[in-house]
Amino acid sequence: MLGIRVIPCLDVTAGRVVKGTNFVNLKDAGDPIEVAEHYNSDGADEIVFLDITATHEGRNTTIDLIRRTAEKVFIPLTVGGGIRTMEDIRNLLNAGADKVSLNSSAVKDPEIIRKAGYKFGIQCIVIAIDAKKVGENKWNVFVHGGRIDTGLDAVLWAKKVAKLGAGEILLTSMDKDGTKDGYDTELLRIISNSVQIPVIASGGAGKVEHFSQAYEYGASAVLAASLFHYKELTIKEVKEHLKFKNIPVRTTN
């Protein structure tokens, strides 16, 4: 059976791992390659690098960081942050990334999803959606690290990106991110039911039960950053819980 993927996310800036609460008050905490190696040996199914300040400051993603990580870590690597052009995507894939995650650039020019999907295969195009609740059962898409409300409805946007050829959606709840009181299950359910592509749940994980809950609400993968980063939970502990709940999951020795 296809297992649910447990994905640690490394938010990086200037070659260092950081993780803030609600995307402000960043704390510096670790070398990304060391952290990635640690997660790999702990049983991570995939690793996401997000250059969280890239768009805001107009920086390019850290190709060198990916190059060095891919030499040592033999599980899928996804990179997001500041990716704008077809050339950016090609450079990251050539450096050893398996997928790229687009956020602001896809909102600005949705056609890039179609073009990149055709050229590189839809499976390497991840669309990151930062959603924030703006009303009863209504979420809007935010960009630039949650600073700007695009006015786009998150459900309609999810459907659109799937139609354009996204391979996967990385769905972050801006309301839940950093709170540790669980993923936004309602958001997760509504998005997952709206598209056939996999949805990665992100934002709000605080204990093992939140991971199995996300699976029940339609997540194909579960992502967490600070929780793993500050060792409040290990990937092994999360997987043991999922296994206990009879949720298919890959186990390593």
Binding site: M1, R5, I122, G167, Q196, I197, P198, S220, R250
Partner: peptide
Amino acid sequence: EFEDKNLKIPHMGWNN
């Protein structure tokens, strides 16, 4: 090609 929306496409992840 699947009718079932729970069978996501792409088939993405670790399978035996």
